[in-house]
Amino acid sequence: MTLLERQEQYVNTLGELDSFDQYTYLMGLAMKRPELSGVPREEEYRFLGCQSNLWVSLEEEEGLLRMRADSDTLIVKGMAVMLADMFTGAAPQEAAQAHIDLFQRLDLEVALTSVRRNGFTELIRFLQNRAAALAEYN
């Protein structure tokens, strides 16, 4: 599955849930995907700009991206794990150029207050810049 196909899958899955269940789903995702969340809680991985603590890493392994994300709040972690699932396995070039808009399309209003939305908009921009840099390096 491509990055955008995984995005569609998340938009469809979450789109069928009411808002309380959307958050429950995200918290479950945060707990159920350890392979996407095992990032050291160290300063070099801390993503600044988010209201909650958020740690992310994006690396390349044999030509494909591997992203991991962690947060102390389960809802934020679940949102970041969705991104980690989308980015992981994608080619750097594909990730750098993809139109990633799931947070705009999903109606997660509370977790996406203006401050928070800036946080996630910034995170996506950071990830795509890093993916572009990795693509160029190849």
């Binding site: 309380f20 958050y23 209201q51 909650s52 709040t73 389960l74 809802i75 509370v110 977790a111």
Partner: peptide, 14 residues
């Protein structure tokens, strides 16, 4: 095990 922020968001939804 819920983090305070998670609790607040889920209460807000109610």
């Amino acid at each position: 095990p819920f983090y305070p922020y998670d609790v607040a968001v889920l209460l807000d939804q109610q």
